[in-house]
């Protein structure tokens, strides 16, 4: 495994300066994905192509890691997958709750692996630099999938519906309603008149909570998009900065080193952001589904958006 990472870094070191976000149009990476062609009104953009490539890679990588079947005594690939899954489960279990975890966990895993590999794939050479020129306009084939707001918004929307589905499945419609609008006051501690009045208060709080829940879609998508897009811009700009050095006589070889530290940074960001997305989704699910067992308490009393 360490060897794998090493070789990955070596690839980054020697190839990264060639990634060349030299798409040529404007300064920085364009904020919207560019359509290469369209099929029946559905435009195929560079970020979608990248999404497909990485999706196929994800599936085949998993198949490859688990080749020869899943066994009780794991092969090397299987133990790698298992160690990641086991680590995630250890973290997610107290957040989501023991009861809801088996239902929710495959979805969380899919989010983690999908976003992680999309983010890491976004660091590969060729992003925004390989493409064709149509009508004098450069159209790249590849763009980090998550640096397109469509992709992250789609992820967040799917996450929102998955959240609703899991909440209804694990807590029931009544449980979901109680969690948002329900009167959570202790009946024995206050007078009945006060208790009835609190119904309206909690309903109003629930309405605000609804807005906050809808905001989660925006915040989830923009967090991931902002990080990836910002990172992409950062790399692009650092490459642009290095082209200045390249024209100088003595230090021109140093120009290759300038984007390098930022690749390490983006490597870190890629891992952390996939983890954050998964963790936030599990927190949202845990806020509704995690009752009864011990883990539920540490989520209370905070507004996670």
């Amino acid at each position: 495994m360490a060897k794998l990472w090493n070789s990955f870094f070596v690839v980054l070191v020697f190839v990264s300066p060639c990634t060349a976000h030299c798409s040529g149009h404007g300064d920085g990476v364009s904020s919207a994905a560019t359509a290469i062609f369209s099929i029946g009104g559905f435009p195929v953009t560079d970020s979608i192509v990248m999404g497909w490539v990485i999706s196929a890679f994800t599936i085949f990588a998993l198949k490859f890691a688990l080749r020869g079947g899943v066994k009780t005594i794991p092969s090397t690939g299987q133990s790698v997958v298992e160690s990641i899954i086991g680590g995630l489960r250890e973290i997610m279990e107290p957040v989501v709750g023991r009861k809801a975890l088996p239902v929710v966990f495959p979805c969380l895993l899919a989010y983690f692996f999908f976003i992680l590999l999309q983010n890491l794939g976004g660091l590969l050479p060729g992003m925004g630099s390989i493409g064709i020129r149509i009508d004098g306009e450069f159209r790249p084939f590849f763009r980090p999938s998550n640096s397109d707001l469509n992709a992250t918004l789609a992820l967040a929307l799917v996450a929102f519906f998955a959240w609703a589905y899991f909440c209804v499945k694990c807590a029931g419609v009544g449980g979901l309603y109680y969690e948002i609008f329900g009167n959570k006051a202790e009946k024995s501690e206050i007078s009945s008149l006060m208790y009835c009045a609190l119904f309206f208060v909690f309903f109003a709080v629930g309405l605000i909570e609804c807005i906050s829940i809808l905001c989660r879609v925006i915040s989830l998508s923009f967090r991931l998009f902002g990080n990836t897009f910002g990172g992409e811009n950062l790399l692009h700009n650092m490459y642009g900065f290095s082209t200045i050095l390249k024209n100088m006589p003595v230090v021109n070889y140093l120009s290759y080193l300038i984007p390098l530290p930022f690749y390490f940074l983006e490597f870190l960001v890629a891992i952390i952001q996939s983890f954050v997305f998964t963790l936030l989704l599990s927190v949202y699910i845990g806020l509704v589904c995690n009752h009864g067992d011990h883990g539920g308490e540490f989520l209370k009393g905070e507004e996670y958006v």
Binding site: R223, I272, F275, Y304
Partner: peptide, 11 residues
């Protein structure tokens, strides 16, 4: 917890 907090602040 801290990654959650950072993510929320970063947003």
């Amino acid at each position: 917890q801290s990654i959650l907090g950072m993510a929320l602040a970063e947003a």
